[in-house]
Amino acid sequence: MREKNRSKTDAQDAGDRLVARHVREDPFAAAFKATRMPMIVTDPNQDDNPIIFCNTSFEKLTGYSGDELVGRNCRILQGPGTDKTTVARIREAVGAGRDIAVDILNYRKDGTTFWNALFISPVRDDEGRIVYFFASQLDFTNVKSREAELAAARHQAEEEVAKNTADLRAALAAKTLLVHEVDHRVKNNLLTMASIVKLQARTTKDESQKRTLMAVLNRVEALSTVQRKLFTLDDIARFDVADFARELVTDLIGGIGREDIHLTLDLQPLYVPAVKATPLSLILNELVGDAVRRGLSDGGGEIHIVVKRLNGHFLIRIEDTVKPVEPDPESAEFSRLLLEASAQQLDAQIERSSQGRKTIVNVTLLVDEHQENGH
């Protein structure tokens, strides 16, 4: 019992040291704790590679409290139905210090089972030594349980289409379900990528590398927001730019944590085909990020976002009033190239004007009427 208590104490101490490296206001530490994706960190340098840190989502998923989890190996989630071959693959990957993604049947504290899309990745220090293992989980029990039903429905739909083209609706419904499942996987991968970049940024001491990682993280999270929006929509063919802009800008400005940034929004529902969602999200993200880099994050100011239909065009306007700060030249150049590439994909026009401390950027694009209103 004494040895068990000591192991738990060592694991707790390791978790405390990990958290202590980051200031309380660190938005990335806060994101790790608050994200809806269950995540844990383990310490391979301690006996039995115990859990040293877990977020609230992981506690909710498993039914265990953080106090019950810290100091224990992840095998606490295994049970009689857990595939031993999968467990062996995980053990081998951890022993070899490499990434692994598997689907595994796990058990909650109350004994109920759930299918876990598990991703494990080592976190190394500047000398290449493994200091932690990061693991993210995704409960896809509903997807797993529906696989047989989807397969049967798809087979039946194919037979019916062959007999009678009037039954194509069944095939289209099955296709929609499959697209949602693909979006679900893409969103999961983007969240996992973002989590890995966050952890890497925390362990990186070079400030230039850290800024680059944060820039990558910012764009990955913008794409993740798009995927989440598409995944939760009943109509996967259309994308509401206004709804996305509200969430993106609120998150970006809120993440800075400054009360001297005044945000105003003039947003009208503006639907575009889903294929335009990604370049539009990057444009919005870059333009708001440009305002942040030019002074919002240092001296505060005002930012006003407009999304509306105007004179047969779709208009996105970003207005900001800030005390100018010279942005990093490399970051500014990369942002410009990304804006140009995204605008080219959309056949959009980007016009910028500045007067004193005020900068206005208008993004206009044409979308056919049937594309906006079609389903």
Results as ranks from 00 to 15, higher is better:
L230F: 07
R258C: 04
K4G: 02
L338H: 05
D235E: 13
R309M: 12
Q46G: 02
R185P: 06
D235A: 09
L178F: 00
V87N: 01
N373A: 13
E207F: 14
V241Q: 07
N188C: 03
L346M: 08
D103V: 00
R211H: 13
D10R: 13
V143G: 08
A173Y: 04
R169H: 10
Q345V: 07
G289L: 03
R108H: 04
V275A: 14
A245T: 01
L339Q: 06
S335N: 10
D298A: 11
K33E: 15
D13M: 12
K84I: 05
T176M: 05
P38E: 00
P50L: 09
D67R: 12
Q46V: 03
V70Q: 05
R75G: 05
V275I: 12
V249Y: 01
L270G: 01
A274F: 09
D260W: 15
G295H: 00
L105P: 11
F314E: 06
K308S: 15
F114M: 01
Q200T: 11
Y132L: 12
L346C: 06
R238L: 11
T176Q: 00
T321L: 13
G289M: 04
P329I: 00
T42L: 05
H180C: 07
F134E: 04
E68N: 11
T9H: 12
S195G: 13
L280R: 00
H180D: 00
I104S: 10
T62D: 03
I303P: 02
I305P: 03
L178P: 04
K198V: 14
G63F: 04
F28E: 05
S353A: 03
T176S: 02
H155L: 13
V131Q: 10
N373W: 11
A174N: 08
E247A: 08
T278G: 13
N142R: 12
N164I: 08
R336V: 04
I256K: 01
I76T: 01
Y271K: 02
Y64L: 02
D43T: 10
H155N: 11
E351K: 12
K144R: 15
T141Y: 04
G299Y: 15
T62H: 08
C54K: 04
V41T: 06
Q349W: 10
A152T: 10
N55K: 14
I253N: 00
P279G: 07
R17M: 15
A237C: 08
C74R: 02
D260G: 12
C54M: 07
E158M: 10
K187P: 00
R98D: 06
R317S: 06
